[in-house]
Amino acid sequence: MSSHAQRLEKCFSLVFPNLSSDQIRRATVHSVPEWDSLANINLICLLEEEFAITLEASDLENLSSFEQVLNHVESCHPKES
């Protein structure tokens, strides 16, 4: 797993502490009932803290799974693996 994926998993685990590592990697807005607007705001703040990127609330509306968020983070920091 890439370093970005590991760091992202840590962010997800803080917001969704009941999910296992495997569940986090397969997480989508639809598969995780706790993934609501408040969780979204916490995720945005954690991603900004962890990856020093700026996100809008609307960004996460289009990023509805762990995989999509990971792709977005990697597009912001393409060199790290």
Partner: peptide, 15 residues
């Protein structure tokens, strides 16, 4: 305190 630290503290207190 950073948000990640705050969430960690709260997650650890759940029990």
């Amino acid at each position: 305190m950073r948000l990640s630290e705050a969430l960690r503290v709260l997650n650890e207190s759940r029990g």
